[in-house]
Design a protein around this nucleic acid. Structure first.
Lengths: 231, 231
DNA sequence: TACCGTTTGTAGCCTAAGATACAAACGCAA
DNA sequence: TTGCGTTTGTATCTTAGGCTACAAACGGTA
């Protein structure tokens, strides 16, 4: 495994040169740890001093419910990170625990050094900073989009908006969803059968055609209308 | 109007000293403009070169729907800002237009200079940077919370979760909502009558008591249970 | 090509919550 | 105190969509 390649996949190191990545280790107090399954690498309530980046393996995030139970609230894979939000919110403590699910390598970089110009006056700080900002800002963007689907009340509205957005993004009448019915239903926060039912109704109305994750839009105007009037 | 006081209210200038605020104008290329009603201060698609902070007055944000219509998508008042997300996402162009609704004063600071160390080597950059980061990170946090309510399917679940969260935040059995029924219904994305109906059912079940925006929690355990099992 | 696991389609029933429309209560100002 | 606007409560009716449970189609593989 090539650490440079891996890191460049992470949004924090987008457009970094190899030699800049090397600097991470001294300028940003970067260091790498290996963990085996079950190891807790972040604990709810503990102060966030470093951002962790999963170089390989997998991990699971847990929040603590008020009754004390832990609840799975997300998964991390190679390239994903943790602590990057909590590092800058509220009391700067982890809001979820992170537990290694499959033997993993984690790169840590110090939160404190990210915003500080280092003595070497290297450009990597600035790049990293911009990337951290992009990373957070983009997250806000996607969350905004996700919330839009949740707010739409009608089944047809949700589906139409999703398909129409994909249509705009992919630019062709034949779009690929990138998830199966279950995942799509979960994303839209509806039940799969109800969603299927409505998709079929839309097919009967001549708006779409589909097989598997490939959707063909037959009546773009109508889909657009539905997507736009959806509240 | 005292500009220092006003700016300190803005999250970007949290914990700034007066003399640091002064530096904004040279280090961060800050400048102030006055506008009258109807003036467009940000236009969809235009590159974001500066972050705008409303010092007083009011403005409205509009997104453009695919059919070309503009749709109101939010309001800005003193202390609010615009462009702070788009400055770091995608193609760095405004995703909504901002139009002045009431005569307003706007302070602009240059996006490019925020991440750059200035020649004066002043500490205000670093503070500002941290504040920008907090600002974005906190937004992610709140959006996450907001989305939680939207994902809960049952009326009682939504209400319980909201009240329970407020209970945790305010630490007393008598909580204040901070919005009226309409606003609460809108926030939870449900119809007001249905919400009222359920609140009354919960009162009949001895879980809560209420008048106006004051809610008294009579059965914390049950409320907690409801809030936690809500999906 | 026969088997099994997964993904998708179908059916029927039932209830939570939407919509509407009106009535009561509350504030506030004249 | 009366009157008016706003906020809240209530009733009725209707329906979209949840849930369950099963059947069909698909895909990989032995």
């Amino acid at each position: 495994m090539n650490i440079f390649k891996l890191l460049k996949k992470n949004k924090l190191f987008y457009n970094f040169e190899d030699k800049e990545i090397n600097k991470i280790f001294d300028c940003l107090h970067g260091h790498i740890n290996k963990y085996s399954r079950g190891r807790v690498v972040a604990e709810i309530g503990a102060p966030v001093e470093e951002i962790g980046i999963l170089l390989n393996g997998a991990a699971v995030k847990f929040i603590k419910k008020p009754n004390g139970d832990l609840e799975n609230c997300g998964e991390l894979f190679a390239g994903d990170m943790f602590g990057e939000v909590e590092a800058y919110t509220g009391d700067r403590t982890f809001s979820s625990s992170v537990v290694i699910a499959e033997e993993a390598t984690v790169l840590y970089i110090s939160v404190a050094t990210i915003v500080r110009q280092c003595s070497n006056n290297c450009p990597c700080h600035q790049k990293l900073l911009e990337n951290v900002l992009s990373c957070l800002a983009e997250r806000i963007d996607t969350m905004g989009v996700d919330a839009k689907y949740l707010k739409i009340k009608s089944m047809r509205g949700k589906i139409s908006k999703l398909f129409y957005d994909k249509y705009l993004a992919q630019g062709t009448e034949v779009i690929h969803l990138g998830f199966n019915r279950n995942e799509m239903a979960e994303y839209l926060n509806v039940s799969r059968p109800s969603m299927s039912r409505e998709m079929i109704a839309m097919r009967e109305d001549g708006i779409i055609k589909f097989r598997k994750d490939e959707i063909e839009i037959l009546n773009v105007d109508e889909l657009q209308r539905l997507a736009n009037e959806a509240r």
